[in-house]
Simulated assay, not measured.
Amino acid sequence: MKVEVRSEKNRQGYDVLILSEDATVADYLAAINLFIEESGIARPRHEKAQAGTCMACNVCCQERIPLTSIDVVNLSSVIPLEELFAKYIYIYVHGRAVDITLQLGPDGICRLNSPDSRLCCQYQVRPLVCQTYICCPSSRRAARLREVVVNTGEDQLVRDWLKMVRQGIIEPKIDEAIDLDLHEDDWLPTPFEGKRSYDEVFLKDLCTPQLWEKLKWVR
């Protein structure tokens, strides 16, 4: 085990510890999913939910759902890339800033959420932000790690999206723009560059030295 996710002492929440120098984002995801399955710590927001259960209130499916470059690789394995960007991805640009997220439907819920079952239609390839969402508090370092992984992955996606548009791989599409001033050169390579799976991305490459020291578990 290269990453451990465990309950915080005296709190109804969780913490993350990195146990190996070569831990990857895939190791982080595996630890998160194992924790969700085994801990029963989830604290749902639905007022009728029982402790330790999820009543599919779908609150998590109504929030901003940023995508990473690898999320798009995974989703495009089941949804053609052109269709994915046209129907399921929302692109917002403000000046030179870009936000690429899953699109919400008229009901305010993610378009990948089935209105009948209230479950994700593409659960096996759901985005990283969905896999790492736990309906309970987290330690500051756990929250910071999640933020760094998601934000860096989204930065890489913006770079890849601009490149795909320039190369004619997908049609140019922006859903909402304010003071549009896009420059491809603004988006530099990240540790996600050229990676097609989370087991290729090392956590140490994503973290600042300060965050890495906080996350490391010293035996």
Rank of each mutant, 00 (worst) to 15 (best):
A42P: 07
C136Y: 07
A30R: 04
I79E: 04
R159P: 01
R219P: 12
R126L: 04
E8T: 10
R146M: 14
P44R: 13
A23P: 02
R111T: 04
W161D: 09
V150I: 15
L206I: 07
V73M: 09
D155N: 15
W217R: 13
D99I: 06
G194A: 05
S20A: 15
P80S: 03
S69L: 00
W161V: 14
A177V: 03
C57N: 13
Q124S: 11
D181W: 07
N113S: 06
W212A: 01
A56E: 15
D199R: 10
P137L: 12
R118S: 08
C60P: 00
V78C: 06
E147I: 07
T68Y: 02
V218K: 13
Y123A: 04
R118K: 11
K87H: 13
I70S: 03
Y28P: 02
E37D: 14
S197T: 12
V16I: 02
G153D: 08
S7P: 02
L104K: 08
D205G: 06
G153K: 06
I170D: 00
G168D: 08
E147L: 12
T53H: 11
A97R: 09
A51P: 12
E38F: 06
E8Q: 14
V73E: 12
N74C: 02
K214G: 11
N58I: 09
R11W: 08
L17R: 14
G52V: 09
R118G: 05
W161L: 15
A51V: 14
T132G: 08
